[in-house]
Amino acid sequence: MAASVAVNQSTAPGAAAKGAVSIRNVTKVYDPEGVNVMAVDDCSMEIAAGEVCMVVGPSGCGKTTLLNAIAGFHSITAGEIHLDGELLCGPDKPLAEQGADRVVVFQNGALFPWKTLRDNVAYGPLVRGQLSKRDALDKAAQMLADVGLAEFAEKYPGEVSSGMARRAEIVRALINDPKVLLLDEPYRAMDELTKSIMHEALLEMYDRTRVTMFFITHDLEEAIFLGDRVVVMTTRPCRTKKIVDVNIPRPRDYHLLSSEAFRLLVEEASEAVHEEALKAFTAGERELA
């Protein structure tokens, strides 16, 4: 018992208990020109500190709205979101303040094209005045080297593959030592091969940092492979439909993908997702008809 705790600590040196996200009865209504569109309806979710929470659901169901609310890009209409017991946004404060404790990794990548990978990574500590320019650049170079990008540190994002760019982008988020990493389909539109390498790289980074992740995806295998829990959302308005616990020990590697336990979990999640996708699809058809 004691031994296993010790092992856990040694594999996760940065495993401080931080980054617990509590989403309580959050509702978001978009109101463009008086047409109420309910994107999120009374959605609740508890994400433990250090948990990898995968959020799946049909397209346009409001997952990103939820992420934007946590990040402070969008306000919420009702409910509360807490981070480590502190109120991020609630009835009196619908829009959360943006902060480096909740860094976002975007769909399709959002590295600054005019900065080299190293300058990109150094950006956060530099603009917050946390590190001197030299220290920020040194740390950035070190962190890039840790993920195998040492020789690409002086390249511009346009000069490296999308896989490398995405890895650098996650490093750019992690250098800020965020409480929670918000990932919005970061590996969308990547080929399976690159994706599987990205997954292993992300797991490796996670094993080092144990940062809480709120990870939106469409890919169920990705969700089960990476996550501690998979939250399946309903079609719009977004509610929690089903939570699949992934009780597969870490560290994980790609052998897992061919195991029976993995297959069963994917099946379980897929049933729930399929049902919602079908609903979303027929609802879409009705709108078009």
């Binding site: 402070g72 909740r102 860094v103 976002v104 399709n108 959002a110 956060g124 603009v127 988020a173």
Partner: peptide, 12 residues
């Protein structure tokens, strides 16, 4: 996304 990325990293 570039603007938001910068904001979320604490840019003034």
């Amino acid at each position: 996304r570039l603007l938001r990325a910068a904001q979320s990293m604490g840019a003034t």
